[in-house]
Design a protein around this nucleic acid. Structure first.
Lengths: 143, 143
DNA sequence: CATAAAAAGGATAAAAATATCTTTTAATCT
DNA sequence: AGATTAAAAGATATTTTTATCCTTTTTATG
């Protein structure tokens, strides 16, 4: 339903939301220290998000990844779509061909309702929403 | 959240629920023809379920897989647990360590409710429930 | 008792997901 | 300009999941 990669990406973005802005960019290394996602792998995921304009980055000294105010308006669903692609979320929970919301299989009816809600949460929650009122990264990543 | 293997297994069991009983066993080949799960792979999954007592089987001529009346009382969750193991479903949606229902991370709160409901559905739905009132396998596996 | 049917089991192969390493490009600061 | 820093990009490696194949064991039946 949600790949590890997507989860990693969300964690990374959350870290950025709490610890970065245009004047304070952060290195992958720093993110890694806190969220414990393999450094090189996380870098790949962030690069991908950056390429798609979900997050921002600059190269060179004083460079790093960060979130602009605009970036913070993106939703969790956008992150997931970039990393996992459209198909993973839209396809039938049971992987049954020609089964969708309009012509659902029995299992879909059983389980699909919860899935849609899950997607709705992802779709209606922006980075900003998540971080709003939170002060430290600890609230998100308890050790 | 649910592996392909689990989905395959559920499909196979559904087929058995609709097409088998102690007096009418079915071959993996027959199931394969309908649900389009790779034959040898499906055989492995059904063997696993059989070993765990979720479904029944007998070897030799006139043998095959089938569901006894007792078998039909098993829940979808039991199938998933045999195939995917306990951990996959119980772990934090976000894969965060030391995060569980009692001490949930922020994302857990956001998304965990739906997940629990999903598990509840699996837990409270028996094979019998699913099949009840259905006449043909087509209702489950639209092509 | 021989034979054939069918699951069970073991070993292997292919594909996808996850992770790492190396090289290139761009920005900043002397 | 040149040196340095850091992300971007590309190539490669590892692991896990998914899938297949082949042999063995069990069992019903002629």
């Amino acid at each position: 339903m949600l790949s590890n990669s997507s989860k990693y990406a969300i964690k990374g973005v959350l870290y950025l939301a709490l610890n970065s802005n245009a004047d304070h960019k952060v290195l992958v290394r720093d993110i890694y220290d806190t969220i414990h996602v393999p450094e090189a792998y996380l870098a790949k995921l962030l690069q991908e998000l950056s390429r798609h304009g979900i997050i921002s980055s600059t190269r060179g000294p004083k460079g790093g990844f960060y979130l602009s105010d605009e970036d913070r308006k993106h939703t969790l669903l956008e992150i997931v779509k970039v990393i996992d692609g459209e198909h993973r979320l839209n396809s039938c929970v049971m992987g049954i061909r020609n089964c969708d919301m309009d012509n659902p299989c029995v299992l879909h009816k059983l389980v699909g309702g919860n899935k849609s809600k899950f997607i709705n949460v992802l779709e209606s929650t922006t980075i900003l929403d998540l971080v709003d009122g939170k002060k430290g990264v600890e609230e998100f990543f308890p050790l």
